[in-house]
Write a protein that binds this DNA or RNA. Structure first.
Ligand SMILES: [Mn+2]
Ligand SMILES: [Mn+2]
Ligand SMILES: [Zn+2]
Ligand SMILES: [Zn+2]
Lengths: 147, 147
DNA sequence: TCAACAACTTAGAACGATTCTAAAATTGAG
DNA sequence: CTCAATTTTAGAATCGTTCTAAGTTGTTGA
C-alpha cells in the first residue's frame, strides 16, 4: 500500500527536501527538519525549537538553530510570522494563510487563506508592489463565563 | 473666530490631554506630546522620536522617551503597531485602522478602518475574545518600470 | 510662600533575542 | 582516502528595550 511512501519515511522526506534546497543533509539539519516537518503545521521560536531538540536528545547549538531556521526560510520551507515584537516565529505552513494570535500564551493558530477575504484594499502607493497581506486576529483569554 | 481654539493653541491641547490622562505636564512630556500630536497622524519609533527631540533642541533621555511612549499608550493617546520584529512603532492614530508597511524604508501608512472589510473570519476559539484584527499590507519597492 | 512628599527623569547597568566571529569539525567530490 | 568547501559552535558582540537607584521637579496644603 502507498502509505509506506507518504507516512513511513519521514526521514527520507526531510533528506529530499534538504537536497532540493541545496542544503547538505547534516545531522543537525536532518534532526531539526524532522522536528519541524514530521507531523502537522507548526509555529516555533528558535528558543523553543532548541529546547525541543535538546529534549529529544539532539545536540545542536542555538546558533545552528538560528542558522537553520533562516536557511529553511530562504529555501521556502518556512516563513516568518511577525506578531510580537519580542520574538520571531517560524511557520511550517508556507501556504497563503492568516493567524489567530493568543496574546496570553503566545501561541498561533492558522486560519485558512481562502476562508478569509480582505476587500476594499486601496491601491498600493505608486512605485510599490504588494508582497503579502497579513491578517492577525489578536485574542485575549475570555473572562470565565458566569455559569 | 473659533480657529483660535482648534488651531492656535496646540500647547494647551497637549497640556489638557496630559491632565486628562493624569500625567503631570513636565517639560519632557509636553515637548514629546507636541512633537507627536501637533500636525497629522504619525508612526514613530522611540529612537526616531528621541532624535527628533534632540534636533528640536529638547533635552530628554532615551529612557524618558520610552517611559513617555508607554504612558501615552496606556492613556490611549497612542497605540502600538507590530510589523517588524526588530522595532516597536507607536501610532498617534488610535482609531480603528490598518497599515501599509514599506519593508524597504520601514515606513507605515494608514488605511482607513472602514475602507477595508475582513470577511469569513472563523469564530474565535472557545474561551477567547477578539481583542483586535490587524491587517498589514507588506509592500516592496517596485522594479523601475520599463518606460 | 514654601516645606514635604510623590511623581518624574536620568545615566548607566542589565537584559534577552539575535547575529557575528573565527576556529574546529564535518561533508562530499574526486 | 584526501582535501577544499561547507557547516557547526562557543562565546563575544549587538541592539532595542527595560531596570535601578539616585537626583530633580511638580503639586499641594499649611
Ligand atoms: Mn531574521
Ligand atoms: Mn512595550
Ligand atoms: Zn501559520
Ligand atoms: Zn496607523
Amino acid at each position: 500500500m502507498m502509505s509506506s511512501v507518504t507516512q513511513d519515511r519521514p526521514y527520507s522526506q526531510t533528506l529530499t527536501r534538504l537536497r532540493e534546497a541545496g542544503l547538505r543533509p547534516t545531522r543537525q539539519r536532518l534532526a531539526l527538519g524532522r522536528l519541524l516537518f514530521d507531523g502537522g503545521d507548526r509555529h516555533v521560536t528558535a528558543e523553543a525549537l532548541h529546547e525541543e531538540a535538546q529534549a529529544a536528545g539532539v545536540s545542536v547549538s542555538l546558533a545552528t538553530v538560528y542558522n537553520t531556521l533562516h536557511q529553511f526560510t530562504e529555501a521556502q520551507l518556512l516563513r516568518e510570522v511577525v506578531v510580537d515584537s519580542a520574538r520571531t516565529y517560524f511557520d511550517t505552513n508556507v501556504s497563503d494563510h492568516h493567524h489567530f494570535f493568543l496574546e496570553n500564551s503566545g501561541s498561533l493558530m492558522d486560519i485558512d487563506g481562502d476562508k478569509i477575504a480582505v476587500t476594499g484594499l486601496p491601491q498600493a502607493p505608486e512605485g510599490t508592489d504588494v508582497a503579502r497581506v497579513d491578517v492577525i486576529v489578536r485574542l485575549h483569554g475570555a473572562p470565565r463565563q458566569a455559569s
